[in-house]
Design a binder for these strands. Structure first.
Lengths: 221, 221
DNA sequence: CGACCATTTGATATGGATCAAGCGATGTGG
DNA sequence: CCACATCGCTTGATCCATATCAAATGGTCG
């Protein structure tokens, strides 16, 4: 499944982040690391050692359910931070959707920095609440009809990737389906219906244009 | 729907929490308030002013979807803290499931305390991560079969209420259904099947006994 | 060009929703 | 104290949205 063996973060700091990383943020510590397409960043049950910020590319976190199906818990785009865990073991795995660069931060260093600098602690709290919000939104999404789930997903991605009405999907139909709790066939059919209704255009399967946001928003509620 | 008008938290501190509230925790600030069954604690779009800790009783947070269906985002039992929000408006509403007592904390006071005391900041972060974990677990739950969702719910409630194999449900079948994204009929049928399979007993509809945790865990994965 | 993989499209099956009725506990008024 | 209304829950019959199975299409890379 994976195209290469898991890359482990370095213990030394060979790749420091750019010198322009602002003081008073978590970006001042940590190392930049590249991951190949489909590379595992961490696995379920791995010890939690790092927090990650996406610099380039995109990442998915997921879990394989007992019946073999895969559920994706979140997609992370440039700027997003992931890897928050309650215990000392990961409950999800994380994989690079495409070639990506991550800022890898030792959890202990982050915690130490937060203890010293309350504004850093505040940032971490805010990021975690934002992540909680996203997870709650996902719950609201996955209980709706297939059509509504797909529309909700498109609007969410559009908002987060800040590219106007253009969407360049980094992920496959299978990834979308596993995020929404649907099958690829159903996702595909929903997109075709939206295209037939002139609400979106599909120049290529990974490039979507939102042609009628108003109508999409109505479907989304 | 609601049995009484919304009760607003007091601006003065008429009801201080017990003097035994430990220093260095958020419990040292705030006021104790009672809420009646089905009373609204806050509504969607209300300004965020407080954090809440459940002292007695139980609470649900939920959202009414466009089609009129209600989705419950979480149940909160004694000890749990709720009311974390990313923005300054609530994205969910909160209601008392049964008569309950809440410790009501001004968000600004909590933030100020966290800025002064890094261990408080750490507690808040940990609670938020725990809440994130729960939301992620709910996503994993609502994409499974009806039977699995109900089993997952029973095991979750059992773990959180720490009452051994006895479960005294504070919430109705409708609440459970709205949490799991099912109908009451489907929840009822799933429970009947579990009873017929001798995995649970149902002395009364709100009192469930887990008779075969091993079998239940197998269904849950 | 041809092999391969991702996506779309088509035909059928099924799990859970919906519609409808029955049941049991609780409460209320005569 | 008992008829009877009410409410929450369970059970039954049918329907429909989405899964599943199957095949066609299209896009990419050697």
């Amino acid at each position: 499944m994976l195209t290469q063996a898991t890359i482990r973060p370095p213990t030394s700091r060979q790749n420091l982040p750019s010198a322009s990383a602002p003081a008073g943020t978590i970006d001042m510590i940590g190392a930049v690391m590249p991951f190949a397409r489909n590379a595992e960043i961490y696995g379920e049950n791995d010890r939690v050692e790092y927090l990650y910020r996406v610099l380039k590319g995109s990442v998915r976190t997921c879990k394989v359910l007992r019946d073999g199906r895969r559920q994706i818990a979140g997609f992370y785009l440039p700027g997003d931070v992931f890897g928050f865990e309650a215990g000392d073991r990961h409950t999800l795995s994380a994989e690079a959707i495409a070639e990506c660069q991550l800022l890898v931060l030792r959890r202990a260093s982050v915690a130490a920095l937060a203890a010293r600098d309350s504004s850093v602690a505040g940032q971490l709290w805010a990021m975690t609440i934002a992540e909680l919000q996203r997870a709650q939104d996902q719950v609201m999404l996955v209980v709706r009809t297939a059509q509504e789930r797909v529309v909700g997903f498109l609007l969410e991605i559009s908002k987060r990737s800040r590219d106007g009405d253009q969407i360049n999907l980094p992920m496959s139909r299978q990834d979308i389906a596993d995020y929404l709790g649907l099958t690829i066939e159903t996702v595909s059919r929903a997109l075709t219906q939206l295209k037939d209704a002139k609400m979106i255009a599909l120049p290529t399967s990974r490039h979507i244009v939102l042609r009628d946001r108003e109508a999409l928003r109505r479907l989304n509620s």
